[in-house]
């Protein structure tokens, strides 16, 4: 009965090594849960070309040219059917009251629904573009509503805020706008 020698000594530690690697990896993942929000890869890059029709008869639409005017803008992506967007409205008004120009893009929205939304929550926007196919979201790397983008005077995207802006985040957004103005 010919018995072969067993595998090399080092090889016997391989399973334990792999297992230790696995444990370290998942421990790391559990201790520091990653932010699963999908961030835009467009930060620091100029806005792509776009031009949207007006969402309501009362206000003009929105195009790239309207944002590269030498003055920073807060571009807010919202919809009348989106609950957090209504929650966010007072914060947008607060930002507007600080002299920040807020422009909006309404996603998959109808003029009459928007009119009702503005009647209830007020209208902080100087311009509202209409996007029925979420094209602006793919152009900016945005993955949901609401989202806000800080755009500087040259039309460069400086900051992306995912989700609604909370009351305690108004200061931070104003700060980002001030940075974009420099």
């Amino acid at each position: 009965m010919a018995s072969a020698p067993s595998a090399s000594r080092w090889a016997l530690w391989l399973p334990l090594a792999f297992f230790a690697g696995f444990t370290a990896l998942v421990l790391f993942a559990m201790l520091r849960p990653a932010d699963r929000a999908v961030k835009s890869a467009m930060i620091g890059r100029p806005l792509p070309q776009f031009s949207l029709l007006a969402a309501t008869p009362a206000q003009p639409g929105l195009a790239r040219a309207d944002l590269a005017t030498g003055k920073p803008h807060l571009l807010n992506i919202f919809a009348s059917w989106c609950v957090p967007c209504a929650v966010e409205a007072p914060q947008l008004h607060a930002l507007k009251d600080r002299g920040i120009e807020v422009v909006g893009v309404a996603i998959r929205d109808k003029p009459e629904d928007l009119a009702r939304f503005f009647a209830r929550n007020g209208n902080p926007f100087s311009r509202v573009g209409r996007d029925d196919v979420s094209a602006i979201q793919f152009a900016l790397g945005s993955s949901g509503v609401p989202e806000s983008f800080v755009i500087d005077g040259r039309g460069v995207i400086r900051y992306q805020h995912i989700g609604d802006i909370r009351a305690d985040q108004v200061e931070m957004i104003a700060q980002k706008m001030a940075e974009a103005a420099q």
């Binding site: 059917w81 989106c82 929205d109 109808k110 196919v133």
Partner: peptide, 11 residues
């Protein structure tokens, strides 16, 4: 959990 738009789907 988000409410959805009642707009018809894109083409």
């Amino acid at each position: 959990l988000l409410a959805d738009s009642n707009m018809p789907a894109a083409a």
